[in-house]
Write a protein that binds this DNA or RNA. Sequence first.
DNA 1: AGGTTAGTAATTTTT
DNA 2: TTACTAACCT
Length: 735
Amino acid sequence: MNAPPAPPHDYLARLNAEQRAAVETLDGPLLVLAGAGTGKTRVLTTRFAHLLMTGRAQPHQVLSVTFTNKAAREMRERVGSILQRPVEGLWLGTFHALAARMLRRHAELVGLTSSFTILDTDDQQRLLKQVMDAEGIDLKRWPPNGLMSVIQRWKDRGLTPDRIPVAETSDYANNRAEKLYAAYQARLVTLNACDFGDLPLHITEILRTQPDVLERYHRTFRYILVDEYQDTILVQYLWLRLLAQGHKNICCVGDDDQSIYSWRGAEIENILRFERDFPGAVIVRLEQNYRSTQPILSAASGLIARNEGRLGKTLRSGRKDASGERVRVVSLWDSDEEARMVGGRIEEARRDGQNLSEIAILVRAGFQTRAFEERLITLNIPYRVYGGAKFYERQEIRDAIAYFRALSQPADDLAFERIVNTPKRGLGDTAIAALHRMSRDEQVPLRFAAERLIQTDAIRPRPRAALRELLEGMTRWNAALEKEGHVVVAAQVLEESGYTDMWKNDRSIEAAGRLDNLKELLRAMTDFATLGAFLEHIALVMENDDNSEGAKVGLMTLHAAKGLEFDMVFLPGWEEGLFPSQRSLDEGGAKSLEEERRLAYVGITRARKYCTISHAANRRIYGNWVNSIPSRFLEELPESEIMREGGIKQAPRIPSSVFSAGAPLSSMRRPRVIEAGAWEVDQRPEREKAFSVGTRVFHQKFGYGRVTGVDDDKLEIEFERAGTKRVLDRFVEPA
DNA sequence: AGGTTAGTAATTTTT
DNA sequence: TTACTAACCT
């Protein structure tokens, strides 16, 4: 997986037989079923290189589609190094990026101009709310999110408002969903905007209805490569099928056992049906795994074998050191003890010289990370939570981008609305309402409506002056864009609009970080030639904040872990209701259970050497204790591959294994006692409270710190990791 | 206009 | 438990 790229002459020699078959089968439809850790990326990139080396195609005649920007970036790099020259003019990217690129060429066919804006989820929601409001829908009775998902589903299935079959209709808001969908789409057109779902929808619609456009692409693309095929949604499949009609040279790589995004519209049927969809298709299975030890592979295989709807394949370990420790299954008393167990073992591994960045804790749902975070803070083990608030999602970044969008797209009302009173300019509901009225009456975007509004006396002098100042600023910045370039103007915008001042005057702890983020945003802008190019990047590449210095334990959801690998993996919370998730089961029944099982399979196969699965008999969920039974998946693991620890199931009285090494004694909980199903809460004896300035203290959540101020029972504490906080003295104890 | 408080809802999230 | 939203007060 991580071997250095082969020089061009022997790139085929470095493949095993099955990988070689996948690379050398060039003509006609090909499905590569690539199990976890079987060298999928290598096959894709080598195949790409092979197409060029054999003279089958020029670089620009190959369409390569991935799901993530990360995968696209990786592939671009690896293709470049195999070819030993930079790769330019490639049609290589995510579904969305490629769709956007094509759509910009033909935007007028769906009523947009080539400079259309791509809205994010937040804008989508606000826009939909406005549309529903305008149609007189009771937003309380009919939550906009419900309609959003109905529309999303239609878009995923390639259905435009005029083409919704009876079988796909929705009874949302008394059958008004279709009308609202049409209104929403119309509104998008007037804003010259698209949401994410529109990108594949529009381009598929164009290819479907415009034979000349389709034919042009047939001439261009001789070969098509698709990564993660099991995750395609129907409209993406339709798009691919249209493009593949030309040469029929489509190669899809995927793993039906790792399909975990059905709730996002992905249809596992796309991969299961491949042979029928593309007659004459060849199927190649990659089953030689280079990642995990045999017990880990056997445990994972035994589990996934319980699924019905699968194409079937069995992983074999191709590693020389294939033998290894069995998968551990640990039973614990409660979730606190589980966190302590995991923390303790990580601490132990660290002492043994294990690199922390090779350790990961993978959970089913985001909220589960908190317990582990607290434990790791206490133990002073550095960690990183993946997939949390992303850079682009942060308020300050979104605000700044809204300013830039409003400048580059005068019709972008959503952006204008966001910034018109940010920072606070004294424009309240009344002023905003007047603005909207003007916009509606005059049939112009908000920005132009504002220009007219300040000529009238429809709003009070104070807000009018504020609005005038903003508009004058925007005119000035727009003019400066030509002369000064987008980076200089961006800095100017944030400064002159009062936006940076807003955060400078903010007393909260995050304010400084926000200003740093804004600086980082400006720095990122220097990588782009124009403001437009930057905004396109921002809309499509939802980059994670990437200051990952130092080795850190990874904390993430199972979904976020797909595609990653670690030496040591912890899989906590294997309990009925949590994993498999009750909610998922309620919604999708047996089909969802299979998806949950695939999720479990993905989790286990992330581990190279050590895999520890655990469950707790009692867990705190939303503030109250719930007792839970072990996940059915634990029973499904082949007994010969696992090692059980802890005897909670039989005698749930005393924690049988306590891994408290290095932990402050005070943070340990006494075992609780169950009486007739009810809880007797742990009563800690009242302690003497005697804190004075300078005392070193310990706090469950914030860790160690020093008291810097005392006000009756309230303490001001400077924590080593969490900064200065004011907390009640009963939450801390002397360290 | 803006801050405060009470009430409510609560997976997964590649773009 | 927490985090977000909508009504409510100043």
